[in-house]
C-alpha cells in the first residue's frame, strides 16, 4: 500500500523511532493522529496514546469516544488529560480569559490552544518516560506552517521543521516525530475511511478565523504535487536555516519546562 510504504520510508530514512523505545502518540480523535497511532502500532512499535480532553462540549465527547474506541480496538494503553481537572478550566474558558486579558492584541484561538497543548504534551510525555512524541502532522500542515513563517517574515521559525524535531537537544524536551510528514491530507482521509477507523471528521468548533485557516484555504487551491514541491524546496533551504538559528533551550522560571526565553509561552499566556 502506497501510504503505508511512504510512512515506513519516512520512519526509516529519518530514524524517527525504533522498536525498543516508548513512543507516545498524541491522539485527538481526528483522522491524522488516528492513522499515526494505527500505523505505528501496525508496524510493531511500542506505542501508547495520549489524549487531551479539551472539554469543548459535544465535540470533545465525540473525540474522547473515538480515541477510546481506537485504543480498545488496537490494544493501546490510553492516557487521558482532563483539562478541567488538571488546569481548572476547559480550553474555551481558559482561552477566552487569556484573550480578554490580552486586550487589543487579540490572540487567535488556535494559536493559544496550540501553545497550551504543546506544553501539556511535552510535560506528560516526559512524565510517561517516552523517548519520542508522535503527532499526526501531515504534508498540508507542514506546508501551511512553512508558508506562514515566510509570510510572517520569520523563516527561522521553520528551523525545527521536519519529520523529527531538529536543533533541540535537552533532557527535558521529548523529541517530536511526524510520521505523516510527507503524506497529503486527502490521502490520510481516504486511508482512514478505507480502514474504517473511529475518526471524528468534523473540525473543532473553536477553529475560526485563524491565520492558518486562511493559508489552508489558499493551499487547498493547489494540487498535491505543488504542496509536495513546497516541502521539497523547504528541504533544500533548511540546512541554511539551521546554520542561522540554533535553538537555545532555557527553563521557564515559572514552570520549569523547556522554553526559548526565561518564561515559556504557556506561562506568558496564562500570566502566572
Amino acid at each position: 500500500m502506497k501510504l503505508e510504504s511512504k510512512i515506513k520510508q519516512t520512519i526509516q530514512k529519518y530514524k524517527l523511532c525504533n522498536k525498543r523505545e516508548k513512543v507516545i502518540v498524541a491522539v485527538s480523535g481526528g483522522k491524522d493522529s488516528t492513522v499515526t497511532a494505527y500505523l505505528l502500532k501496525k508496524f510493531g512499535y511500542n506505542v501508547e496514546a495520549f489524549h487531551i480532553d479539551l472539554k469543548i462540549g459535544k465535540y470533545s465527547e465525540k473525540c474522547l469516544g473515538a480515541v477510546k474506541e481506537l485504543c480498545s480496538d488496537l490494544d493501546i494503553k490510553l492516557h487521558i488529560y482532563d483539562m478541567k481537572k488538571e488546569m481548572g478550566s476547559g480550553m474555551c474558558y481558559l482561552r477566552t480569559a487569556i484573550q480578554a486579558k490580552s486586550g487589543k492584541t487579540k490572540l487567535k484561538n488556535c494559536a493559544i490552544c496550540g501553545v497550551i497543548k504543546k506544553w501539556i504534551l511535552n510535560k506528560t510525555a516526559r512524565k510517561l518516560k517516552a523517548s519520542k512524541l508522535a503527532t499526526g502532522h501531515n504534508l498540508d500542515d507542514e506546508a501551511q506552517t512553512f508558508l506562514m513563517n515566510i509570510f510572517k517574515g520569520s523563516p527561522q521559525l521553520s528551523a525545527n521543521t521536519g519529520p523529527i524535531s531538529r536543533n533541540i537537544s535537552d533532557k527535558k524536551f521529548i523529541p517530536r516525530i511526524k510520521p505523516l510528514f510527507y503524506v497529503a491530507e486527502n490521502d490520510v482521509r481516504e486511508y482512514s475511511k478505507k480502514k474504517k477507523l473511529p475518526v471524528v471528521y468534523e473540525k473543532c468548533p473553536c477553529a475560526i478565523d485563524s491565520y492558518r485557516i486562511q493559508v489552508r484555504k489558499f493551499l487547498n487551491t493547489l494540487p498535491t504535487k505543488e504542496k509536495q514541491n513546497i516541502m521539497k524546496n523547504f528541504d533544500k533551504i533548511s540546512g541554511k536555516i539551521q546554520k542561522v538559528k540554533n535553538t537555545r533551550i532555557e527553563y521557564c522560571e515559572v514552570c520549569g519546562e523547556p522554553a526559548r526565553k526565561n518564561i515559556c509561552k504557556k506561562c506568558e499566556l496564562v500570566g502566572v
Partner: peptide
C-alpha cells in the same frame, strides 16, 4: 453553524461558532 457553513453562509457560520464559544464559557462559569 455547521449547517450554515455547508450552505456557504460563511459569515453567519463564523458568527455562530463565535457565539457558541461564548456559551461554552458561560456554561463553565
Amino acid at each position: 453553524a455547521k449547517g450554515d457553513e455547508k450552505r456557504d453562509n460563511a459569515q453567519l457560520a463564523k458568527r455562530l461558532y463565535a457565539h457558541s464559544e461564548t456559551l461554552y464559557k458561560a456554561a463553565e462559569e
